[in-house]
């Protein structure tokens, strides 16, 4: 049995013809080798795409460096389809984590900022009133 090889990468990237796409989806349902390879490729691809986008070093564009432009990857509708296929065949969906959160209270935020803004000598409104309850003995 001939395995799909580089067709799998192209499939993940949506760089296949309609015939090739059908070939991949029909072949992969009963080929464990290609399922495993597709999962590996998917992982490598995701790893590369998870790399942080770096900002241009300041000054590189003579004053234009501070312009913030996200590194936009062109939308490709088939990515969702490909990812879904991978999920179905190799059970990737079980790995998708719920989005965890970090709790910070309002007091912590204010305290952090107001402690810092003491460095700012101008007591404009807001700096005059740290809206925080400090744990001071007997002050309540």
């Amino acid at each position: 049995m001939t395995h799909l090889g580089e067709l799998l990468s192209a499939y993940l990237d949506g760089e296949v013809t309609e015939d090739e796409r059908k070939l991949v989806t029909s072949h992969i349902t009963d080929c464990g080798t290609c399922q495993a390879e597709l999962a590996d490729l998917h992982l490598a691809r995701s790893a590369l795409r998870s790399l942080p986008v770096l900002d241009l070093p300041a000054g590189l564009l003579d004053g234009e460096a501070s312009v913030v432009i996200p590194l936009v990857r062109r939308p490709r509708v088939w990515i969702a389809a490909a990812a879904a296929t991978v999920a179905v065949f190799v059970g990737v969906a079980t790995f998708v984590a719920p989005e965890p959160t970090v709790p910070i209270t309002f007091n912590e935020i204010s305290l952090e900022h107001n402690n810092r803004s003491q460095l700012d000598p101008l007591l404009t409104p807001g700096k005059a009133v740290p809206p925080v309850s400090l744990p001071i003995g007997g002050a309540e």
Binding site: T101, V102, I104, E108, I109, L119, D120
Partner: peptide, 30 residues
């Protein structure tokens, strides 16, 4: 002020702000 959170203080001499950044979503109960 929490694990996984970093904050930077910015000022222009008149106004100031602090940015808190985390790789997770930040939840402020209030």
């Amino acid at each position: 002020p929490a694990a996984g959170v970093t904050n930077g203080y910015y000022a222009d001499g008149i106004f100031s702000f602090t940015v808190f950044v985390s790789e997770r979503a930040i939840e402020v109960p209030e």
